[in-house]
Amino acid sequence: MEKLKRLGGQTVEFTSFPTVIGYAAVVGPKEAEGPLGKWFTETEEDPMLGQESWEKAESALFAKAVNSCLKKSKLTPESVNFIVAGDLLNQCTASSFGLRDLGVPYLGIYGACSTMAEGLSVSAMLVDGGYAGHVIATAGSHFCSAEKQYRFPLEYGGQRPPGAQWTVTGCGAVSLGYGGNIKITHATTGRIADMGVKDANNMGAAMAPAFVSTLLAHFQDTGKTPKDYDLIVSGDLGSIGHALAVELLKKEGVTLGDNYKDCGMLIFDSQTQDTHAGGSGCGCSASVLCGYLLPQMETKKINRLLFVATGALLSPTTTLQGESIPSIAHAVSFETL
């Protein structure tokens, strides 16, 4: 039997180095007005995307992002062996309904806001294992459908607490295969962490321990240190989770400097866009990765990236039942060739 392609307890080492072939990010109007607005592949002026419901609008985001990714990758749906997709809606409706006409073998996944990293890990394993020539990983979310499912109707007059985050309307898609300029070297699969945070309006605080756990596991398994990366990004910890993560890591003897950023803090200007602690949702890390970070790698402004998407695995029911929030983070390591 072949030697396992593993390092330590949680990390997969890719020996054939799957690469990024193409990518696309489609976002809504608020994201387009944010600091990264000019980077996204496509921006939509209409949050409904011309559809009749928020769920259909989110599905349309997936279809647009994946079609744009196929185009940029110069791939046809027939040449893609798997699409690994997920979103925040019950039964992963946005991804499955949005991609039902695509005709690509489909694997639906759920990792809350960590879905993009989960999808990328699985996709890279499929390519590295020799089970696929091309795989697309995609994840997305929509502010309005998320509000409807997790919180209150849009027009309801309530106040958001300062720790609340703003679900990103956006979808990112990446195609993997061989022959690209950015390789995936490692994927560290997170363990579920729960430090007893019950406040669904403070998900950054709930997710920070998961981010820390996965990051420490990644460094331990690979022997790398924060200095080995030009940039380490967490998915959507927001300003509170970001600060907590830095503090927790410091206690563990790991100091993160200016090379640690958070996608949730990058995508919105919290001062002018009223997004409180920052952006969140599957679409947050997915659209920042596919719209902003991968283009930076393409032009070699970033050469070594550790992408750690974070997810709060709660549901409205568990929140009502007073449960604490189990959280997850998965890390994917990118390097330019």
Partner: peptide, 17 residues
């Protein structure tokens, strides 16, 4: 780290309304 200790850290970092 204990949950209780983390709870205190969270409270400190989270701005009040």
């Amino acid at each position: 780290m204990q949950k209780k200790e983390y709870g205190k850290m969270v409270k400190k970092q989270t701005p009040d309304s």
